[in-house]
Amino acid sequence: MSAVATANAKTLPLTGEGVEEARVVPAVAGWRPASAALRAAVPVLALEDISVSFGGVVALRDVDLRVAEGEIRAVIGPNGAGKSSLLNVVSGLYRPDRGRVQLGDRHFSHVPTSRLAGFGVARTFQNLALFKGLSVLDNVMMGLVHRRRAGFLQQIAGTPWARREEAANRAAAEEIVGFLHLTEASERIAGTLPYGLQKRVELARALVARPKLLLLDEPLAGMTLTEKQELSRHIRNARDSYGTTIVLIEHDIGVVMDLSDSITVLDHGCKIADGTPDQVRANQAVIDAYLGVAHGDETELAS
């Protein structure tokens, strides 16, 4: 509460009764500056001075990042800029050479991947990472595996506890499958579905546990424009319905500008810009990184 109060104190001319006032602030509709500051007080994800290198190749250099609750944050940059490395650091697949990762109120120098789901973090992968031999519904149910407690003997015997767990997970999976309009495909084997649907199944699997933080690595890659628009809508819906904070990597600048609240731009492992879509669009360093030299070619980026 004190953090909230100080965050408020910066924007509100409050005195002694700061704590009392702070309680009311979130209820004040449309008062964006205060509520933004309030949310920023405890970021869902924060990176401090993250550096990663492989041998002599630097993938990320002193990257800072703060993502507030409920935000859709895009990470963009040319190929090899370190975008996927960033997500791999957050999900613990890479151990950074330096720096710290903060998830909610936990700090890590190396995020323990096996506990990630328990922290409320889910992710998708750049190349599909579905379990190809399982049905769509079973894939989605896998997204709840970290909550399973019944042992294998109970599962074989079908004890009431194991059955309840199974039924609850199945219901949750069916709900998310319906939410993403996958019901008709839910009994199909995931590996036999067309690419666009597989991408959506992966999103469903990531969403089923209602994660606090969702990391999407090029969720729209390789899709047609219609598919991109549809999936963007689903991603936005997920944030609006479940309050999920989303960090996504995407190449399609047009989609990114529409979808995200704020954008971080990486180039050669360094963060070169951070801000709202409009700020990023006007940023000269970003234009240079994307277009090489050309000054005055902003129209292409802005289109």
Partner: peptide, 28 residues
């Protein structure tokens, strides 16, 4: 019965994509 339960799904998940299984919380 075992293969139709969560444990059986975990087996297939580990077979089909070990890293995704780990991220999702399958105890490898």
């Amino acid at each position: 019965r075992l293969l139709a339960s969560q444990s059986g799904r975990n087996f297939i998940a580990v077979r089909d994509h070990e890293i995704a299984a780990k991220v999702i919380g399958v105890p490898l």
